[in-house]
Simulated scan of single mutants.
Amino acid sequence: MNGSTSGSVTQHIGPVRTCIGCRTRTLPSELLRVVAVDGSVVPDLHRRLPGRGAWLHFDLECLRNAERRRAFPRALRVQGALDVALLREHLEQHGKSTGGQPPGRQGTRKQVDPS
């Protein structure tokens, strides 16, 4: 063989994370990192909080799916139930106003000079 591999060719595009609500794999820039702090699930907006994190789309439906599946304690490796009130409040404020896009991503279109 001349060093080629059989099968499809995949292009490396960087790290990929899985939403714990819908189980879709996507880029971290499209997801919100959450961590457990004192029995609550809190959004990690700057992705710098210590501890194990989990990833979730900016979508209330993904939050509902994660709650229904009891995914937060499992993904964050925490015993017992976790309170998601802070996370729900954050998603209600930011998820709807940006159409499900991460904060700061809604106005990223390039302007084209009409001349």
Rank of each mutant, 00 (worst) to 15 (best):
V37H: 09
V84G: 00
P15Q: 15
L49Q: 03
C62S: 09
C19H: 14
V41G: 02
T5R: 12
L27H: 11
L76A: 11
Q11V: 09
G39K: 05
T98P: 00
G99I: 08
P15C: 05
P114F: 08
L82I: 09
V41C: 06
Q111I: 06
G39Q: 12
D83F: 00
L87E: 13
P15V: 10
E89V: 02
R64N: 00
L45A: 06
G7S: 13
D38H: 09
L45Q: 07
K110N: 13
G99P: 08
A71G: 13
G3R: 10
C62A: 14
R52T: 07
L49A: 02
R33F: 09
C19S: 15
N65T: 06
P28Y: 08
Q11C: 10
P114G: 07
R105N: 08
E67F: 03
D44L: 09
E89Y: 04
P73T: 10
F72Y: 09
G104L: 03
R70S: 08
Q106G: 01
R68E: 07
I13F: 10
T98Q: 03
H46Y: 09
Q79C: 02
E67K: 11
R52W: 04
S4D: 09
V41L: 07
L60H: 02
L27F: 04
P15I: 12
G14P: 06
K96L: 10
S4C: 08
P28T: 13
A81Y: 14
R25W: 06
R47C: 07
R47A: 12
A36N: 01
R68P: 01
W55D: 04
G95V: 02
E61W: 03
Q106V: 04
L31F: 09
L82G: 01
S97L: 10
P114K: 11
P50W: 13
L45R: 14
V78K: 03
C62W: 07
C19Y: 08
H46T: 08
R17Q: 09
R25A: 15
A66S: 12
T26C: 10
R109H: 11
A75I: 05
N65Q: 15
P28L: 05
S29N: 15
C22R: 05
R109M: 12
S115C: 06
T5C: 03
E92P: 02
H94Q: 11
T18Q: 12
E30W: 01
A81L: 13
G104V: 06
T10A: 12
L91N: 02
D38V: 05
H57Q: 05
A54N: 01
G53A: 06
E61R: 04
H12V: 03
A54D: 00
R68H: 12
V34Y: 04
V35W: 06
T24G: 05
L82V: 05
T26Q: 12
L27S: 15
D59M: 07
R23S: 10
S4L: 14
S4Y: 13
V84W: 01
E61Q: 13
K96W: 14
R88M: 03
E67P: 02
G104D: 05
S29R: 08
G7W: 10
D113S: 07
A75L: 11
V42M: 00
L91M: 05
E92V: 07
